[in-house]
Design a protein around this nucleic acid. Structure first.
Lengths: 110, 110
DNA sequence: TGGTTGCTTAGGCATGTGGCTAAGTAAGTG
DNA sequence: CACTTACTTAGCCACATGCCTAAGCAACCA
């Protein structure tokens, strides 16, 4: 079984409501760190850590422009994770579909 | 923005290669803790913690049968997470599609 | 050029995570 | 009933995470 450090980081980044909310906010378009942070009652350094996790998971890209840092979505890695999930889900349901009627009759796995 | 503790736990559970490998293994069908653990060079208590995370994230269900504990996939929560990702991805790409040509001309967000 | 804005760095603290060993318990086996 | 098997519990450890305050720095504004 291959290691997928990309998926590790990506799913870790997604496993937090603040970070998912940031992604949602960025779906509306590019935003500065300050604008993004405003809705969250959180000190800026704390918020910046979340952005760092998102950037390391390659879910967003950021760029300094003047004294502001602008953030935008980077959909590639997100798409990879989504596709991994779709593939796994299909494997599972394929098997469950095949065995469905059989297993309905009886619990026959030992 | 609503809290989604379910997504938190589910994505957290997915953010580890051992746990993803367990899910993959279970796609072949139900397995006991011992059989699942064998491929990983890990003490059983450590491995059990991973199973606990998977169970708390409702990605698997387990059941004691005799002295063995059998594990199987529980696709519902996984499907929810997958669908969340599909919905978000669609929001993003919808916007990127709409703005694509416009943004190609010039960087006009401030 | 002095002040304000917007981020950044440094460092501290509580809790969570992921690994371990050792010892316990319950179910099967002879 | 003794022994083995398959977990399970308890407890320890190092490091990561998520939050904070305080202080720094670079860019803009008057």
């Amino acid at each position: 079984m291959p290691k997928q450090p990309d998926l590790d980081q990506t799913f870790h980044a997604l496993a937090d409501p603040t970070r998912r909310a940031v992604l949602s906010a960025l779906a509306e378009g590019e935003k500065s760190v300050g604008d993004l942070a405003a809705p969250f009652g959180m000190a800026l350094p704390s918020f910046m850590q979340h952005l760092k996790v998102l950037e390391e998971g390659q879910l967003i890209r950021t760029e300094k422009r003047g004294r502001r840092r602008m953030c935008r979505l980077d959909p590639a890695r997100f798409a990879e994770a989504k596709e991994w999930m779709e593939a796994e889900h299909q494997r599972w349901t394929a098997r469950l579909g095949r065995l469905g009627a059989y297993l309905d009759r009886k619990d026959n796995l030992q």
